[in-house]
Design a protein around this nucleic acid. Sequence first.
DNA 1: TATTGTTATACTCTATAACTATA
DNA 2: TATAGTTATAGAGTATAACAATA
Lengths: 158, 158
Amino acid sequence: MELFIDRSIPAPTVQACAEEVLAVVPSIMSTFRTEMRAHRPTELSLPQFRVLIFLNRHVGASVSAVAEHVGLALSSTSQLLDGLMKRGYVTRDTAAADRRRATLSLTTLGQATLESARVHARARVEEHLSLLSEDERRAVTASMLALARAFDPSTACG
Amino acid sequence: MELFIDRSIPAPTVQACAEEVLAVVPSIMSTFRTEMRAHRPTELSLPQFRVLIFLNRHVGASVSAVAEHVGLALSSTSQLLDGLMKRGYVTRDTAAADRRRATLSLTTLGQATLESARVHARARVEEHLSLLSEDERRAVTASMLALARAFDPSTACG
DNA sequence: TATTGTTATACTCTATAACTATA
DNA sequence: TATAGTTATAGAGTATAACAATA
């Protein structure tokens, strides 16, 4: 029986694997960006989208927490949030316990926008993935978990 | 024998798979960008890096060809190329056969810069991937090929 | 003094629209 | 007229450095 993951041939070297990741991941991102941008009713940039996802799951998060999660400098994150507040997607309050700390939350509009963007993004990705076989989907899912662990150990299980 | 890709349990749905891809791929990109930017001697942006890779392989390419490959608008690509020419990485000539068409090539400096950036990027990615098991590398490599096909059929085998 | 965050400034990325030059 | 490409303009993303406020 020939397995999709065939252990009888040598595993790809780390180098070869890196080569593939380096070639393919940016090209997937290109597609994402273009498709997100084309979603007129919502039209969130990818970083904005990621911030909304994070805030939806971490109500009351600080600016620093967002920055760490999205992998941006604090100032960049602050500016990203400016944009999201200006559009009415996010509110910011001052934490009572520590008045330096901001408390960020999604507005109802922000939640609805996130949901719309998410449905759209997922649909686009699903369109692409529907070209894959079951075994390929198994491999992709397993890979994503492994890569999450390899590239971002902190959030691999959250 | 328990397989890494276990066919005895149902394959992930397209939806679940999309969810993972959507979560993990942008996070890998964040890491890429940060690491590319931190490579002081070279310090190419990711789009610049991708353009250099393409031109290295397709000597004499037109602006349109680059645009199509990196997934940008023609004008965006033209400007990206401006930056690369200003830094002396790329030369542009006019094609004799069709004087509208540009003929782009890497300079020696461009080639050297690309090589340096490439070595660095690969090393960073390898660092991350070295955390994976052999089976995980098999899955990742297989996935990248599948994803390349799913997201960009035109370049899947080029 | 250390931490949280914002503002100032500057550069890159990206698009659309208007344009030039060549075919 | 159609095609290849550039320029003008505008907005988002991103960083560093300097700053303000709070602890």
